[in-house]
Amino acid sequence: MTKFLLAVHVLAAIVAVGPVSVAASMFPPAARRALTSPDDTRAAETVQLLYRICRVYAVVGVVVPVFGFATASNMGVLGSAWLIVSIALTALAALVLIALVLPGQSALVEGGGTREATVRLAMFTGLFNLLWAAVTILMIVRPGSTTGA
Rank of each mutant, 00 (worst) to 15 (best):
14 I>N: 00
52 R>G: 06
44 A>P: 12
52 R>M: 07
146 T>Q: 12
45 E>Y: 11
29 P>E: 03
50 L>A: 03
147 T>F: 11
7 A>W: 09
5 L>C: 09
28 P>Y: 02
29 P>D: 01
94 A>E: 10
51 Y>I: 02
126 G>F: 06
51 Y>P: 01
52 R>D: 08
6 L>Q: 13
148 G>L: 08
147 T>K: 12
13 A>K: 04
88 A>N: 09
128 F>Y: 15
112 G>Y: 09
53 I>M: 10
104 G>A: 02
6 L>P: 05
82 W>F: 11
21 S>A: 14
74 N>Y: 05
102 L>D: 00
130 L>F: 14
96 V>C: 08
15 V>M: 13
132 W>Y: 15
58 A>Q: 01
29 P>F: 02
90 T>V: 07
44 A>K: 15
20 V>D: 01
113 G>R: 01
47 V>H: 00
22 V>H: 00
44 A>V: 13
54 C>F: 00
7 A>L: 07
91 A>H: 13
83 L>N: 12
10 V>E: 03
88 A>M: 14
54 C>W: 01
25 S>K: 09
34 A>K: 01
39 D>Y: 02
58 A>Y: 00
110 E>R: 06
18 G>V: 04
38 P>V: 03
81 A>Y: 13
41 T>R: 07
56 V>F: 04
75 M>Y: 14
132 W>E: 04
50 L>E: 01
93 A>F: 02
65 P>F: 12
65 P>G: 09
47 V>M: 01
30 A>M: 05
17 V>M: 13
146 T>A: 13
98 I>Q: 12
127 L>S: 07
79 G>E: 09
103 P>R: 09
44 A>M: 13
148 G>W: 07
133 A>W: 15
26 M>K: 12
138 L>W: 05
2 T>P: 03
129 N>A: 07
131 L>N: 02
72 A>R: 02
40 D>H: 10
70 A>D: 05
113 G>I: 01
32 R>K: 11
25 S>Q: 15
99 A>W: 06
23 A>G: 05
13 A>S: 15
139 M>K: 07
58 A>C: 02
135 V>C: 08
7 A>F: 07
68 G>H: 00
47 V>L: 02
34 A>V: 04
136 T>Q: 03
